[in-house]
C-alpha cells in the first residue's frame, strides 16, 4: 500500500462514482460532527458494510486478520442523482427503495475497491450491505478514517473502521 488511507478513500470514491455511477467528485467537504449537524446536513441515507479479514486455507472462513466496516452516508440530492445515473432513469424518478438498493451497490463497490488497495495480499470477505436505521452511534473499531466529498449534486461521506491487528 503506497497511498495513505484518506488518499485511497478519495481515489476510490472518484473512480467508482465516475466509472459506474456517472457522478463527479468536485472536492472535499469539511466534516461535521453529528451533534453539530444542521437538519440539512443530516444524511438522507446511511449504509453499512461489515467485512472480515483474511481468507483461511479453505478459502471461505476469514479468520486470520481483523475486519472492520465501511459506512456510506449520502444526502438526499446525492442519493437521488447517483441512483438515477446508475439506472439511467430521470432525475428524481427512482423510488426510495431502489435508491437504497443503488446506494447499497455503491457501498459494496467502494468497499471492495478500498479494501483491495489496503488488504490485497491477505484478502477479505465482505458481508451484505445494510441500510442503517436510526442513529449510527455504534463504532467498535479503534482505527477510524472519515472523508466527505462534495458531488456535482449533493454530498457523500465515507467512514472506514478497522480493527487493530
Amino acid at each position: 500500500m503506497t497511498k495513505s488511507v484518506p488518499a485511497i478513500l478519495l481515489s476510490s470514491a472518484e473512480e467508482v462514482l465516475e466509472t459506474m455511477f456517472f457522478t463527479q467528485v468536485v472536492g472535499k467537504r469539511p466534516l461535521v460532527q453529528d451533534a453539530d449537524r444542521q437538519p440539512s446536513e443530516k444524511p438522507y441515507l446511511a449504509v453499512r458494510l461489515c467485512f472480515l479479514g483474511g481468507l483461511d486455507s479453505s478459502g471461505n472462513s476469514p479468520s486470520r486478520r481483523p475486519g472492520g466496516q465501511l459506512d456510506v452516508e449520502v444526502s438526499r440530492e446525492g442519493a437521488q442523482w447517483i441512483a438515477s445515473s446508475f439506472l439511467a432513469a430521470d432525475d428524481g424518478a427512482v423510488p426510495q427503495h431502489r435508491v437504497a438498493d443503488v446506494i447499497c451497490e455503491l457501498t459494496n463497490v467502494v468497499c471492495g475497491n478500498v479494501m483491495s488497495k489496503i488488504a490485497s495480499e491477505w484478502g477479505f470477505s465482505m458481508l451484505s450491505p445494510e441500510v442503517i436505521r436510526g442513529p449510527s452511534s455504534e463504532w467498535p473499531y479503534e482505527i477510524r478514517y472519515e472523508e466527505s466529498f462534495q458531488l456535482e449534486r449533493g454530498w457523500l461521506t465515507l467512514r472506514l473502521g478497522l480493527a487493530s491487528a
Binding site: E15, V16, T19, M20, L55, G59, N108, V109, C111, G112, N113, M115, S116, A119, S120, E121, W122, G123, F124, S125, M126
Partner: peptide
C-alpha cells in the same frame, strides 16, 4: 465481475475455473 479484487480472491476464482476476472468498477 466482483468488487473484491484482492490477489487472494482473484487467485481462488481463477483456480476454480474462471477465464477472466474483472474488478468493479466496471467500464
Amino acid at each position: 465481475l466482483s468488487a473484491d479484487s484482492s490477489e487472494a480472491r482473484v487467485g481462488r476464482m481463477l483456480a476454480a475455473g474462471a477465464r477472466g476476472y474483472l474488478p468493479k468498477p466496471l467500464s
